[in-house]
């Protein structure tokens, strides 16, 4: 059974604020915490990840994909968020939903709660995700007749934050992303695109879906969670 619910997500004042989560309640064989990719790729992969969760539910596996403050349905301002705070939020979500496993997707690998085993789907350093958004900004500006470069934008981003791909990223998160390498996989297994088949849906200019890819990823997760 699917539902959207709210969960008490830590806010920056030390309190909590409600955030939405997509949740499949079936928990007979555990609960998978799905951490969506960062920014633009979250929109492109949301339907795909929802489909994976639906398939897991059919296999008796519960899952939850929480919103993080400042993105998707959140009412919190994005420009004050930091990656360090989002890591706290991921830990809080894991505890609140009694997650037994985690799935990170692309650049959300950096948010994996340390105590959980699970998977990283096509992991990407957050710095690479930032570089693509900076490049998009340069292309857009040039089209509008403004001359910008990634290096000058980065200087500004570190001091005052930056509007990238429609997201107002604050200076601290900008600096954190810029220096973020892919963490050691630790207890997480990497799932590459070759395993899932086809080409990554984050490449698509418009959000798209591929049921075969969803089935392939769900199969990897279901087998792992049954062990």
């Amino acid at each position: 059974m699917t539902s959207t619910c709210t969960w008490p997500c830590p806010d920056l004042s030390g309190q909590t604020a409600p955030e939405y989560a997509l949740r499949y309640l079936h928990q007979r064989k555990g609960c998978l915490l799905v951490i969506p990719p960062l920014f633009d790729e979250a929109n492109k992969l949301r339907y795909f990840l929802g489909s994976v969760m639906r398939l897991l539910n059919r296999a008796g596996i519960g899952s939850v994909m929480p919103d993080f403050p400042g993105v998707n349905e959140s009412l919190q301002p994005l420009e004050t968020q930091t990656l360090a705070h989002w890591q706290n939020c991921a830990n809080a979500a894991a505890t609140h939903f009694s997650a037994t496993h985690v799935l990170t997707v692309r650049a959300s690998a950096i948010l994996a709660p340390p105590g959980l085993s699970g998977w990283r789907y096509a992991p990407l350093p957050a710095a690479n995700a930032l570089r693509t958004m900076l490049r998009a900004r340069v292309v857009m500006s040039r089209e509008a007749g403004r001359e910008e470069t990634q290096s000058r934008l980065a200087e500004r981003g570190r001091v005052a934050g930056l509007e990238l791909a429609g997201h107002h990223i604050g200076p601290q998160m900008f600096a954190e992303m810029e220096s973020a390498r892919l963490p050691d996989s630790g207890r997480l297994a990497d799932v590459d695109q070759q395993t899932v088949g086809g080409s990554g849906l984050w490449l698509r200019a418009e959000p798209d879906h591929d049921p075969a890819q969803a089935e392939a990823l769900a199969a990897v997760l279901a087998v792992g969670m049954a062990q």
């Binding site: 633009d40 690479n128 693509t132 490049r135 998009a136 292309v139 857009m140 490449l203 200019a205 418009e206």
Partner: peptide, 14 residues
């Protein structure tokens, strides 16, 4: 129309 600035950036990175 679908080839917006973000898609171009993705294209170049790929």
């Amino acid at each position: 129309p679908e080839l917006d600035s973000m898609a171009v950036a993705t294209l170049l990175t790929e």
